[in-house]
Amino acid sequence: MRFGVIVFPGSNCDEDAYHAARDVFGQEAEYLWHKDTELKGADVLILPGGFAHGDYLRTGAMARFSPIMGPVRAFAERGGPVLGICNGFQILLESGLLPGAMLRNRGLKYRCEHVHLRVEQTDTPFTGKARAGQVLRIPIGHGEGNYFAPAEMLKQIEANRQVVLRYTDPNGVLNDDWNPNGSVNAIAAVCNERRNVVGMMPHPERACEVLLGGVDGRVIFESVLASLRSAESLALQPQSAGRAS
């Protein structure tokens, strides 16, 4: 499979996502510069963490105007899997590809630490290999991860089962003490209505190797690989049937 990792000026987890895709999971990976206008045949897109355009004005606010975002939008509309991690999530929110907005962390300070996440939905390309209710231990690193949606929008997001991950205690129980940033309904990740675009504040690419102290992030990558393979085998079925006859 081919991962396309989008690089905005100020992205700083682009190499980490690329490393995870290529070196940890043995997949093809390609950097896509924000001024590029095509996706170089990527099967899955990652908008990585960082401070695109310095996060000046608002986090992710300028990146949505980059030329690459046209093809990204078209890819998402065709149903292609898109994952926004941290700043990538913020960019997807600002672009309107995902609902809601980010505020400063409740404690006002940047927080870098491991958090516990409960898997809420498994029918997205990035959580298909996880169990519903499974608790993942994955690091965060952000100053503006306080997810917000106006009441009406929030109601709709919940009704549509668009909340993919929530911050919980280590046992998977909702507890405000374990909500690191004050996100409404302890939301750590959401998807779009079509479920192919997912944004998450935690960094799965930081939790894919034993040496780094945890491998709970692997399931995000394994899920999308499985999802792409099954999509591919579906697409290939008529062809292979033809060859057999």
Binding site: L103, R104, R106, G107, L108, N146, F148, P150, G182
Partner: peptide
Amino acid sequence: TLKPSVFDPQGRT
């Protein structure tokens, strides 16, 4: 400014 319905942690601090 943040809308009145949106919590403003900096303002509160």
